[in-house]
Write a protein that binds this DNA or RNA. Structure first.
Lengths: 195, 195
DNA sequence: TTTTATCTGTGAAATATATCACAGATATTG
DNA sequence: CAATATCTGTGATATATTTCACAGATAAAA
């Protein structure tokens, strides 16, 4: 929608949205209809109105604080790369278990030792975390994040985490090797079907 | 399964697998049944046999070459982090459009200018790519990857790519900001339902 | 104003996915 | 060896998701 606004458009049809995101116009309309009756028959959806409604429904209109746990190469790259985030998310802290790493890392974002995790998350009201620690450490980290009251976690460790609803934490696992396996499974099975 | 093997087990039941990955035993059995009749009633699945069959079906028993396109902080971190990959995937090349970056980057993996992309992918038989270029450049990059004959792409740029089946390329999009939006939508909607 | 084109919202139908339940086979125990 | 416990593979059922089709409303054109 922001792309279309940039082109000077003020309204958009389900068809146009569908083409942008490679989804049928039916599905676009059906999904939007769960939020409410937002469109205008004949001319489509007013972009500003649609953005507002989606934002309210999904909680995207408020700024949320996030942190990075594990400051290896990957963690540091994420910590320092503000372009990775849209404007309502702000990385406000980094954590690592190595004091040495914390003292030597050059960055304008404050970094803390891992044992302060729960405390700082609670005090600063941090809601989201990206974790890039080695697999064996991730279970311990998630416990401390939950203790601090974190709400969502993006997990880059190779050990998938399954936070329960009871814990009130949602986890999104991402594993590059897993994606590679998935992709190679797709094209391997394609070949098996075609001979 | 490798974890269980490490503990000395040689066979595993659908129940045990299900507990490990938080899935019902029914689903585990049903999924495995699509590959064939691999289990033994009464004692479960022989781990070595199950690994072999899954590997063959999904093409995980062969080594596959991969590359990283875009050597900013994130791309460099991925290029240099071999722990991110399981043993059948090997990063054999990095690419960037900045000659300066290519000349100054210190790594034991060969790096090349982006204009050599298609050529090197073809010559070296690279099947997988991770792309971490800025959004606006990604469409051009994917064209060159396809030209070189790439089979699968993990896309970290914020612009989602949709490779068609016709192009014989599969794409897995990953966008950290998108995951944050998804997670905050989940807990926001949870709050809306509970009052 | 009248006609024609455009577009939403949504029941209904079609697909796909997940779950269940159990027959029948194997392993284990006493 | 008999009795009991364990476990797979799968048809059947249930649930979820996607797609379709169109009534009815608005916008644009003539």
């Amino acid at each position: 929608m922001e792309e279309l606004e940039g082109n000077g458009a003020s309204s958009v049809s389900s068809n146009e949205i569908g083409e942008k995101i490679w989804v049928g116009s039916h599905s676009v309309r059906k999904d939007i209809s769960y939020i409410g009756e937002i469109g205008t028959v004949g001319s489509g959806y007013e972009i500003a109105k649609l953005k507002k409604h989606i934002g309210e429904k999904l909680g995207l209109n408020v700024e949320r604080k996030a942190c990075v746990v594990g400051l290896g190469k990957l963690g540091t790259a994420i910590l320092q790369n503000e372009k990775l985030f849209s404007n309502n998310f702000k990385i406000v802290a980094g954590f690592d278990s190595s004091i040495n790493k914390i003292e030597t890392l050059v960055t304008h974002i404050p970094v803390y030792p891992a044992y302060d995790l729960a405390d700082i998350i609670r005090k600063q009201g941090i809601e989201l975390a990206v974790i890039t620690v080695p697999g064996h450490a991730s279970r311990d980290i998630i416990d401390r994040l939950v203790e601090g009251g974190i709400r969502g976690i993006v997990n880059f460790s190779s050990v998938p985490l399954h936070a329960t609803y009871k814990e009130k934490v949602y986890v999104s696992n991402f594993d590059i090797a897993g994606e590679f396996r998935f992709l190679s499974a797709l094209f391997t099975m394609e070949q098996q079907h075609h001979g």
